[in-house]
């Protein structure tokens, strides 16, 4: 019966919009990669990694915080930032409202302080459920604020990246967030503080070309797609198919741009060990 329900959902128009996220079909989800039907609870207990094929499902920022930060220690920065709509697009305002309603989060990044096995950090977690994690003024501001807060509190900074890039709806203002966040990271470096960037699926465009690639240490989740230009754009430009495994986390490690690909089940411990090595 449950399977029937899933099949029905698959045939619906909505299916096109559902990507590799948590597919909210009752108590069951289907792995996008191996097509295995998995009991949701089992999946969540397994770090939202498919027990059958190891596929890392996309994580909401809420679930990510839960996996990385010690229970009860996450303290979100309370920033009441007004929406930015420099191009004055009505459809953009509407879409923000719809997304807030649907996701229960206010923007594409959650930022605050917390502990990892007792070690204090400033942490930012981007969320692909909100505008594919794209960076507009509010995201840029929250990241920059967090970097400055890390400097003020003399704490290490961890950013979990997931993003389609700059938020086109905000035009040039979104491009400028790349300069703003990168300038803040430069200050963090001057202060001698550790910044660990964790790249998750997908990380692209203006986020790759700013704070995502500026970590002292850059980790990535297995099989995440990471790049500057998207595969479709590259394919169009060069007019040929892309090589197997192109732009995966493993590819970036091979090319020398990612320090280490880390399985989600080992992420917290790896971060903890790295924090200890910088004490």
């Amino acid at each position: 019966m449950v399977i029937d329900k899933i099949k029905k959902r698959e045939n619906s128009d909505e299916d096109e919009n559902i990507q590799r996220g948590d597919i909210p079909i009752g108590k069951w989800v289907k792995c996008d990669k191996c097509k295995e039907i998995i009991y949701k609870e089992t999946l969540h207990q397994n770090y939202s990694v498919c027990p059958n094929c190891g596929n890392h499902f996309r994580l909401s920022s809420r679930r990510r915080v839960k996996q990385i930060i010690d229970e009860g220690t996450f303290c979100e920065f309370e920033l009441k930032l007004p929406d930015s709509n420099p191009l004055k697009l009505d459809e953009y305002t509407k879409k923000l409202e719809v997304l807030r309603e649907k996701t229960g989060i206010d923007e594409a990044v959650k930022c605050g302080t917390g502990k990892i096995n007792g070690e204090d950090v400033v942490i930012c977690v981007m969320d692909s459920n909100f505008f594919m994690g794209s960076m507009g003024k509010v995201v840029g501001e929250k990241i920059t604020y967090s970097v400055e807060k890390a400097i003020e509190l003399k704490l290490p900074l961890i950013i979990f990246c997931v993003s389609g890039g700059a938020r086109m709806q905000e035009g040039m203002i979104s491009l400028m967030q790349m300069a703003k966040t990168s300038a803040a990271i430069s200050k963090l470096n001057d202060a001698g503080l550790l910044y660990i960037s964790v790249l998750t699926d997908p990380t692209y465009g203006g986020v790759t070309a700013s704070f995502a690639m500026l970590g002292d240490i850059i980790l990535a989740e297995p099989n995440s797609m990471i790049g500057f230009a998207g595969p479709r754009v590259i394919k169009q430009t060069i007019g040929q198919d892309l090589p197997e495994g192109f732009q995966t986390a493993e590819f970036l490690q091979e090319q020398g741009f990612v320090d280490k690909v880390v399985h989600r089940s080992e992420m917290k411990d790896t971060l903890y060990q790295l924090l200890l090595l910088h004490k």
Binding site: M178, S182, T208, A209, S210, F211, A212, M213, L214, G227, F228, A229, V233, I234, T237, I238, L242, P243, F246, Q247, Q255, G256, F257
Partner: peptide, 15 residues
């Protein structure tokens, strides 16, 4: 936006 550009870290170079 090319294969070589990605292999050599276009995003990292800009960042």
């Amino acid at each position: 936006p090319g294969i070589g550009a990605e292999e050599r870290g276009q995003g990292e170079a800009i960042a």
